[in-house]
Design a binder for these strands. Structure first.
Lengths: 337, 337
DNA sequence: TGTTAGCACTCTCATGTGTTGAGTGCTAAC
DNA sequence: GTTAGCACTCAACACATGAGAGTGCTAACA
């Protein structure tokens, strides 16, 4: 594509991102490219429309960039490299809350992202496929109930209630815990599952406890979408001019409740540090006029998760990118403290 | 108030609840009280307006019930006793999900309520002032970190990460746990706090662990609003005709994010089984056209929490009441299984 | 041959103007 | 005390009209 067309397209995207209203040739001529006349720009715009980069809501409105245009724009941005932004401090300080569990880090990251950008944000927990058990312990709760706590080497903690035989007291439970810990420590969750299946009858502990471990490790393994994905700032959607109608906004909000779908979309970053699904690319019907920006963060021992933002296709991609990258870096730092 | 006025007022409230549009004398005459002429009803409505039960958006619109009218209506309903509703089955089955922790019960209750009623719902965790510690245990996580788990007699479980001295191994931690459990079991959280302050130097365990217990017990005690109150189904608000403008809806949604305020409103049920804050009564500016219905649920040993619904003042109070009471009963049953 | 000025044309949006209909209040009759 | 009737009010809707923004096309220009 010729350079001039590209410059005009860029101007259109910039203006549309800023104003959310269709942009006409005269606006471009005056605000962005005064060395050209509006007529020239009109001609170029006509070409760009034919090429699929622009569309007109109606014949006498200005032009609106298509997903294809955003795609080009974003690819250009990514190729150019992401600019360092002045927001760094803001991002960093937003994270400086007291945190203990991994879940809390993740949650506060999502919250900070949403507040900073005024978009909806999400954070995906690190993938846990290769988690190894470090320790497990039973904590007596009542006569026949105990809390089973599993700690993995990544420091991820999960717990569940299990029924235990009434004749087991605290010391007995501790003994069982210790034995099981020794047995399983260093093994992956999958290994534990197969090992447990083999035990079957000749179990070294309370059968109900074994069932509990089984349940919990499968649960940790194929962790449900609800736990993996945290979404924040969905209310911000109501501030977008494209979602002023409550009905439309509601549709989108309900769609975001379906974490399964979103999870499928953002789970795979295709090895990229940054990825954007623009408009219909994201494949979720209700989100066809939304873009989803996804960034990867890393976490000790090569575990990876993703963070991202959801907004209208008309997003200030440049600043979105730098914020996301910043957030990802800060998370890296905190998680590998 | 004369019986006829009351009947007319009731008809107006019913109609407005159903249609959300101002209701005129003729509608009442035809749909509700055909034995009276519209002129008669007009006269009565005029009286009712003077008495503060009705208001007119503009001179030639119908009338709209005021908060005072809803208050009267609700008080009448409550005096009459709450009707058993046919929804019982729906409510009960909605709760029949697998549950383990108290938190899960509470969360699923809120979710079920929101889905059933299509309003926004909330559940307040049981008040924990008189909680007694049943057991506490340290679970080693990494070299210098442990998870401190506190179990109370109500079966409520809380945990937090604490730093521990590096020379303590699993057995040492268990020994400390056991000692501390014996020391504190049966005591209330407040007692633990004062006891810990006395220990100061001559501690029977790792000082960092004691600090952790201290932190966690204060935290459990003056539990933050975030943890105490669960809100669900806020998206449903976008379905209310009175919140079709995205801006208005956004205001309300943000207001609901401030759990502190809502908590103050619903914490105290003034000893009533059911309580409704109608319109401005709730004291939250953004919620001046919302009603908040609150029901109490009980839980072993006299601990009490509340569940409730948030909707427009124009709510079908009758069915709201029976749903709430049902939910509260089901929660009682589950929690004292 | 690419660029530009000019012009006719289109379509939205805001504004103004009747018109309709729902609803009221008042009065007089029953 | 209740009702019928009537004049009046006001929002809502449809419709026309004009302004403004924007386009495409053509012809002139460098």
């Amino acid at each position: 594509m010729e350079d001039r067309k590209q410059r005009i397209l860029q101007a259109i995207v910039d203006d549309y991102v800023a104003t959310a209203t269709p942009v006409g040739s005269r606006t471009i001529a005056r605000k962005y490219l005064p060395e050209l006349s509006s007529a020239t720009i009109r001609n170029e715009m006509s070409d760009l429309e034919e090429m699929g980069y622009l569309s007109q809501p109606h014949v006498s409105a200005g032009r609106v960039p298509s997903s294809k245009a955003y795609r080009l724009y974003v690819d250009m941005l990514l190729a150019k490299g992401i600019q360092q932004s002045a927001q760094e401090e803001a991002v960093k300080s937003a994270f400086q809350t007291r945190i203990s569990h991994l879940e809390d880090v993740v949650r506060s990251a999502a919250q900070a992202l949403a507040e900073l950008t005024r978009y909806a944000s999400f954070v995906l927990m690190p993938r846990q496929e290769s988690l190894r058990i470090a320790n497990l312990q039973l904590v007596p709760v009542s006569k026949a109930l105990a809390l089973l706590v599993i700690v993995t080497d990544g420091g991820i903690i999960r717990d569940t209630m299990v029924k235990v035989s009434e004749r087991l007291d605290a010391d007995a439970l501790y003994a069982i815990s210790k034995m099981l810990s020794e047995q399983f420590s260093g093994r992956t969750l999958q290994e534990v599952q197969t090992a447990l299946r083999q035990f079957a009858g000749q179990s070294p502990g309370d059968p109900q406890v074994l069932q509990g471990i089984m349940d919990l490790s499968t649960q940790m393994d194929s962790q449900n979408a609800e736990d993996q994905l945290t979404i924040c700032g969905t209310h911000n959607i109501l501030g977008f001019p494209e979602y002023q109608e409550a009905d439309k906004a509601r549709q989108l909000l309900y769609a975001l409740d379906d974490k399964e779908a979103l999870l499928n979309l953002v789970r795979d970053t295709r090895g990229e540090e940054l990825l954007v699904h623009i408009g219909p690319e994201n494949g979720i019907e209700e989100m066809r006029s939304c873009s989803v920006a996804v960034a990867e963060y890393r976490f000790s021992r090569g575990q990876r998760g993703t963070i991202g933002l959801i907004g209208p296709t008309r997003m200030p991609y440049q600043s979105i990118f730098s914020t996301l990258r910043m957030a990802s870096q800060v998370m890296n730092d905190i998680l590998s403290n």
